[in-house]
Design a protein around this nucleic acid. Structure first.
Length: 456
RNA sequence: GUGGUUGUAGCUCAGUUGGUUAGAGCGCCUGAUUGUGGUUCAGGAGGUCGUCGGUUCGAGACCGAUCUUCCACCCCA
């Protein structure tokens, strides 16, 4: 035990079954991305630190894995810096590279760097691991995959509508019914903050509001007050806590609250348009829901904000997210380039499908037929048949050693191989194959063509 | 980063106020059955009790540190 090797906290090994299941999800997402017209790109797993640092807020900077410089990096440090014991001073001197924290910022960097080779609007998708020095919990890892699709260079609201359809299409194919696509709009939040006289406290205001369903309205109010939002302001929020009804009803109430905020009304208008269009196209199995408390990723979202939550009863935060960011590339010097993107959380979708038993059995079916090894002559004949079966794309293998029958049968049984073929002296003579169906326990003597048909 | 929690055989877990040689079920290996697995029966192997250090005549049990697990906060896929 003690000497056994291990892997770092928050990382995982994947066995064959797990890989098959993950591939199934990724392939589904990838297929839909391509059907919707997105093109794949990949970026390095690590970037220059200054590309990443400062893009995710202080909290984000803390969670970025830094890579130590190579060589005699300590010798270059002044004694002052060295003895300061200040991470802020020291870190940039000993680490100039960092593991990517998400796929959006590297994508923004990519767009700016390759702006002259790209046709806009540029639709790209990217499926790669990201790393966060977070403390792991269920569904939270330090290495995990994001599956992102983004469009830059178009402000059209049709993108929002298409992304809603894309979410719906992916979860429909995965047979994950009843997911809720929550939508909100930064402009609405900003408008509300304006109305209650807390425009400068937008982030504090939204972070508190975001916790509404978790800690209740009294706690939310208390948190807002503690962040310096006035009593009158908080009082004005009362109708917000009592929003009821469907999308349209909530829009009506919000309009009343936001009557004096130009920005807020703009946000409402956008939400109305998206809702109307989505209703017209009809979603296959997802529900679109307005959620004014939704406030994730506010560091860069400027318009629509999306979050997809698992069907009711599955306790695992969000399984996908996204939103519009009007000026993401601005930080890298390319102005007026609006973008919108969504991200699927592969690892969380996996946990949800697992919990609901939604993985098809077929995806974990590996070897279809195993040939028992009776010795060199028999094995040679078997290998010939195996080779032919493989030419037909059938997953077939020969047990490599002349082991005891029991051992070979056991091997097939444990690996869930559905068919076993026995070729001994008798079969060699008559050029037949004894095919055993491991599920039924029955067996029959057949020709190669019959074998091919049975196991195909 | 803050607070809490977990770690004993491959797996799931017992193990009394600190006391000889640490247990069970399942799994695994061998045989009954040398051309038949998943059922049955008989036998067998496997643990420096997460790691390091401390207290004690004596530690799986107590203390400290560290790693790991899970949870809450923060934040988030």
């Amino acid at each position: 035990m003690a000497q056994k090797p291990s892997i770092p906290k928050g990382t995982r090994d994947f066995n064959a079954t797990e890989v098959a299941k993950r591939t199934y999800i990724v392939d589904t997402i990838k297929n839909k991305f391509e059907v919707f017209g997105f093109q794949p790109i990949e970026t390095p797993s690590f970037e220059n630190s200054d590309t990443l640092m400062g893009k995710y807020g202080d909290e984000g900077d803390r969670l970025i894995f830094k890579i130590l410089n190579s060589g005699e990096y300590l010798k270059k440090i002044s004694d002052d810096d060295y003895s300061s014991k200040s991470e802020q001073k020291l870190t940039p001197r000993i680490s100039e590279k960092a593991l990517r924290y998400d796929l959006t910022v590297p994508f923004a960097r990519y767009v700016v760097q390759h702006q002259n080779e790209i046709e806009f609007p540029f639709k790209r998708y990217q499926i790669q691991p990201v790393w966060r020095a977070d403390r792991p919990q269920k569904g939270r890892f330090r290495e995990f995959y994001q599956c992102d699709a983004d469009v830059v260079g178009s402000t059209s609201l049709f993108q929002e509508i298409e992304f809603i359809q894309l979410y719906d299409a992916v979860f429909d194919v995965l047979n994950l019914k009843g997911v809720t696509i929550k939508i909100n709009n930064r402009k609405v939040l900003s408008g509300i903050a304006e109305v209650i006289g807390a425009k400068d406290k937008l982030i504090d205001f939204t972070v508190a509001l975001d916790k509404l369903d978790k800690i209740g309205k009294e706690m939310v109010k208390a948190e807002m007050l503690s962040k310096g939002i006035s009593e009158e302001g908080v009082a004005k929020l009362q109708p917000l806590f009592e929003l009821t009804g469907d999308f349209g009803d909530q829009i009506k109430s919000l309009k009343a609250i936001l009557i004096n905020s130009e920005e807020g009304l703009k946000g409402i208008e956008e939400l109305e348009f998206i809702n109307k269009a989505t209703a017209e196209f009809k979603l296959k199995s997802a529900k679109l829901e307005l959620d004014v408390t939704l406030a994730r990723g506010l560091n860069y979202y400027t318009g629509a904000i999306f979050e997809v939550s698992a069907p009711e009863g599955v306790k695992i935060g969000s399984i996908a997210g996204g939103g519009r960011y009007d000026d993401l590339t601005g930080i890298f010097g390319l102005k007026d380039m609006s973008g919108i993107g969504i991200s699927f959380g592969l690892d969380r979708i996996y946990l949800v499908l697992e919990e609901l038993g939604l993985f098809p059995n077929t995806i974990t079916a590996f070897t279809k037929v195993l040939f028992i090894n009776f010795g060199e002559t028999e094995a040679m004949a078997c290998l010939k048949a195996v080779t032919k079966l493989r030419e037909f794309g059938i997953k077939a293998e020969l047990y490599p050693d002349k082991a005891k029958m029991k051992k070979q049968m056991n091997y097939a049984n444990r690996r869930n191989i559905p068919f076993v073929v026995l070729v001994g002296g008798e079969e060699l003579k008559t050029e037949t194959f004894t095919l055993k169906d491991m599920n039924k326990g029955s067996q029959e003597s057949i020709t190669f063509n019959e074998l091919l048909e049975k196991v195909n």
